[in-house]
């Protein structure tokens, strides 16, 4: 019996979320009294694989075949299922990310496992295996029991955190049993957001809405984000208008994020927007309308004009840094 995590990597480096999965699985496995392993698919160097040991993973299986970088859903689900069978996994944990969401449901069918997505923190009980998840896009939580012997879950981002607990880990090569023909997803081009903080990985997010008036006014938003090492986000109308890319859209129909700090500039705080950000640890709202609903969700607020507040905030952050 064991707990297995499916780690995610990008350009050969683990994504931050992989370390959160490792921390979470280590704690869960300790509570269950079982071992914990990780599966890594695609080229990742030994020194990088060894980092999982910092978060308690004792055994790492690595299938370095570059075919996996096409993120072929069918092939990855097959490989992770094979890894789960190999270690006799009773709980398999993936990230609630674009990739995790693509793989986990397929994997659960392969393993005859019950599946719950977007799990928040450790199970509320192990017998029966009951987890808490967000429902109605943040308007409620549901405690859900998984009845099957094997369980598959995806962990909501930033719902557990990264905890170091160094152990010696063994790294072994793993063969997912796939041939080239099993990879049918053909990538024609990739458009990488380079040099920027991944929105879903970001501890701080600077977000702006229609109150910014036009695409060309985003300069100070980008500057503030740069100073804070923050990810950039926006409300839906902003991406609908084409002022910002779809990748930045947060909310019910966009990304769901849970950073430590979320800045909302000129965002009214519609319920569909809040659905994507309400799990943030701290929300700061800047809006000229004192009755804007965003202030009900916010921890700190300034009633004021974004164009006046932004330059001051940028100055204050610079001062705070020095």
């Amino acid at each position: 019996m064991s707990v297995l995590i499916y780690t995610e990597n990008w350009d050969g480096k683990f994504k931050k979320v992989s370390y959160e999965l490792a921390s979470y699985a280590t704690k869960l496995a300790a509570e269950m009294g079982v071992t914990v392993s990780a599966i890594s698919l695609g080229p990742v160097e030994e020194s990088e694989l060894a980092k999982l040991g910092n978060y308690g993973i004792t055994s790492v299986m690595s299938a370095p075949c570059s075919n996996y970088t096409s993120l072929d859903n069918q092939a990855i689900a097959t490989a992770v299922a094979a890894a789960a069978k190999k270690v006799g996994a009773t709980v398999v944990i993936l990230a609630q990310s674009n990739l995790g969401k693509a793989i986990a449901p397929r994997l659960s069918v392969k393993l005859n496992a019950g599946f719950v997505s977007g799990v928040q923190g450790l199970p509320v009980s192990l017998q029966p295996f009951t987890v808490k998840k967000m429902v109605f896009t943040g308007k409620a939580f549901a405690k859900t029991t998984i009845h099957t012997a094997i369980k598959v879950i995806t962990l909501a981002p930033n719902s557990f955190g990264i905890v170091e607990s160094p152990v010696q880990s063994t790294i072994e090569k793993f063969d997912g049993g796939l041939s080239d023909a099993d990879f049918t997803t053909k990538i024609e081009s990739t458009n990488k957001v380079t040099g920027k903080v991944l929105l879903t990985d970001a501890d701080i997010v600077v977000s702006a809405g229609r109150g910014m008036k036009a695409a060309e006014n985003w300069g100070p938003i980008e500057e503030l984000a740069g100073l804070l090492g923050a990810g950039l986000a926006c409300s839906r109308p902003v991406s609908d208008e084409g002022w910002r890319s779809h990748g930045e859209h947060v909310g019910q129909t966009g990304k769901i994020i849970a950073p430590n700090l979320y800045f909302a500039f000129g965002i009214s705080g519609a319920i569909q927007h809040l659905g994507g950000v309400s799990s943030s640890k701290c929300i700061v709202a800047i809006n000229k309308d004192k009755d804007a609903p965003i202030f009900e969700a916010a921890d700190y607020g300034i009633v004021g004009d974004v164009f006046k507040v932004l330059p001051q905030l940028i100055e204050a952050v610079k001062e705070n840094k020095s």
Binding site: F141, A142, T144, T145
Partner: peptide, 8 residues
């Protein structure tokens, strides 16, 4: 395979 026990 899964069932909701309670809402919060």
């Amino acid at each position: 395979l899964t069932s909701i026990v309670t809402f919060e």
